[in-house]
Computed example of a mutant assay.
Amino acid sequence: MRRDVFQAIADPTRREIINMLSHNELNLNAVADNFTISRPAISKHVKILTECGLVIMTRRGRERYCRANLAKLKEVNEWTNRYKEFWNEKLDALGDFLENEK
């Protein structure tokens, strides 16, 4: 299944994993230690993040380390900026309308 960044960030656990990994590279056990859900569930979340490119996995010996690839969030930023501009224009127009009604 092809996953995209929007699917990945839809889940609050995955957003928290991205946040953690944006500060430090961690192995899977260290990531899982920060959550009350099972390690297999964390592995599934990390797999989804890896499939869409938000997390990069590297192997060192027997350990797998995760680091965030925040450049992939550029797609989200560009998409939200379009709507930010749209709403700013609408709210400015509403403000102008209300000022003229006074």
Rank of each mutant, 00 (worst) to 15 (best):
E25D: 01
E51R: 14
S38T: 06
E16D: 05
T36K: 13
R14H: 09
L28K: 11
I42Q: 00
K47Q: 10
R59Q: 14
V31G: 05
S38I: 03
A41W: 03
G61Q: 02
A41E: 07
L26D: 06
T36I: 13
G53H: 07
S38M: 05
D33H: 07
T36R: 12
V46D: 01
D33E: 15
M57E: 15
A30T: 00
A32P: 08
L28I: 15
F35I: 04
L28P: 02
R15Q: 10
L21V: 14
T58D: 15
H23W: 12
N27M: 11
L54N: 06
T36S: 15
E25N: 00
G61E: 02
V46C: 05
L28D: 11
V55K: 03
K47E: 07
N27E: 11
E63P: 04
V55N: 09
N29H: 13
V55E: 07
K44N: 09
I56Y: 11
R60I: 02
E63V: 11
S22L: 05
L54G: 00
A41Y: 03
D33G: 06
P40L: 13
V55Q: 03
G53T: 08
K44Q: 09
T58W: 11
S38R: 06
D33S: 10
E25Y: 04
N29G: 11
S22C: 04
M57D: 11
R14A: 05
N24G: 04
G61P: 05
G61V: 01
I37D: 02
I56P: 05
V31K: 03
E63C: 10
G61M: 00
E63K: 15
A41F: 02
I56T: 11
N27S: 12
S38Q: 09
H23A: 12
A41K: 05
I48E: 12
H23I: 08
K44G: 12
S38Y: 09
R15S: 08
V46S: 02
E25K: 03
A32S: 09
I18P: 14
M20P: 01
E51F: 13
R14V: 06
R60G: 05
